[in-house]
Design a protein around this nucleic acid. Structure first.
Lengths: 234, 234
DNA sequence: GGGTGGCGAACGAACGTTCGTTCGTCAATC
DNA sequence: GATTGACGAACGAACGTTCGTTCGCCACCC
């Protein structure tokens, strides 16, 4: 990559960062290109040297974010054999990403419908790929059970698995709406609360699942950035 | 109420219905007053006979919705003494409301930040009141425990209670993003999945909590409408 | 009972502003 | 000296809102 290309890529990323903040605060239609120009220091027209339209900018933002999330989830998929712990890692990764990059999170959740039809399908398929990773983690916990001999629970059908997975995503995704570091503990606390609900519920005891004290206290931040720069071939 | 007033109130409600659909689809800034005029059959300027501004329209929409939710939650608060069942009723009421009125739901979740400062505080206090109702229901389940003698779980502090409550709200609120009646079962199924996760988690057994089969199969729809019409003094 | 005046309610047109986008030009870089 | 990239100016369209007017209904007086 020539220095020229590197500079161009960096400035594209800078613009995306600023756009994420503005769209998160005011919505896609609420952010004007003049707002974005002021935030980035560019002139309004210069932005069009980096993105062909406002909508392409939104699409790029969402695509990069999902690719980052998917890559992070895949990287940590095989770290541990225990399903409950693996689910914790999945939850924590996403919670941390969303807390660190709340702007991007809000854009992902709120502005999927604002995409033009052309880019809609691409983002949707990325979202589905990410959902499947989460569902696999949930299914593994389901299948393993808790080690309890009790088998009063009926067989888990696919529809119920989907509902449970979506519900767990709901807990994670909702974090942006309420989390305040000074009020609600560390990201680890949040991930443990969610994981606890997902695995044990509010009150049940989970003899065979790892105690929360045994869960990894911290995970390597890794090298994933807010918006991974896609190099090369995809 | 004179027929005149009744007609005016009805038309205000009609406009709010149409606005909810448009805002849900395109966002507050994405809906133009011309869109709304076309959807309602009014001329653009006639809308200003019913609402003083676009922002007041949004505020009214949110305030009515939260008042409806709070009233429904309060009405059913003392129906049953069992905490777990009471939590189920709370969850089901909200899930059903959101599935029946997905438009309003999206507006509540997405467009809180688009409110002008004047109306912001009113909506926020309604939201907090509603949160407290939910938290009380969660706290009761927490306090009762599951009847298990096992007390390995530490004392439940207020912060953890908040996190758990927010997480449960997250499961409920996220329903709008994925629920499809033909794919994901009935609203009762959804409420039971969420309640099951909240109380028992994915895998734990809950000896003392009611089996899902014993939960009320259906609840009276009640007379709450999409946007309750506030008569009189508040 | 039939005209008539007042008024709520709906409207088209137009306001000034801001929107996303394009274009021609000019300075800086290789 | 050619190419890249930043820019101000300008575009038509659409924005939220206001204005003056009209229309039709209902209460009132002759």
């Amino acid at each position: 990559m020539t220095p020229r290309q590197a500079r161009l890529a960096q400035q594209r990323a800078d613009i995306l960062h600023a756009a994420a903040a503005l769209i998160a605060a005011r919505g896609f239609h609420g952010m004007s290109m003049r707002d974005l120009a002021e935030a980035t220091g560019f002139g309004v027209s210069s932005l069009y040297n980096y993105f062909t339209s406002k909508e392409e900018l939104l699409a790029e933002l969402q695509i990069r974010a999902f690719e980052t999330l998917i890559a992070a989830a895949n990287d940590s998929r095989n770290d541990t054999p225990d399903p409950a712990t693996r689910l914790y890692v999945f939850i924590f990764n996403q919670v941390r990403y969303f807390i660190d990059h709340a702007d991007v999170m809000r854009v992902l959740i709120h502005e999927a419908a604002a995409l033009p039809a052309e880019h809609r399908q691409r983002v949707r398929s990325l979202k589905e790929a990410y959902f499947r990773i989460g569902r696999d983690a949930v299914a593994a916990v389901f299948a393993q059970g808790c080690g309890t001999p009790d088998s009063a629970r009926g067989p888990v059908d696919a529809v119920a698995l989907d509902r449970a997975t979506y519900s767990i995503f709901g807990m994670i995704n909702w974090v942006w709406a309420w989390y305040e570091p000074s009020l609600h503990g560390t990201p680890e606390d949040v991930a443990r609360s969610i994981h606890g609900l997902a695995v044990c519920g509010l009150v049940a005891r989970c003899p065979a699942s790892p105690s929360h004290d045994q869960l990894p206290q911290s995970l390597a931040q890794g090298q994933v950035s807010l918006l991974k720069h896609r190099t090369g071939t995809h």
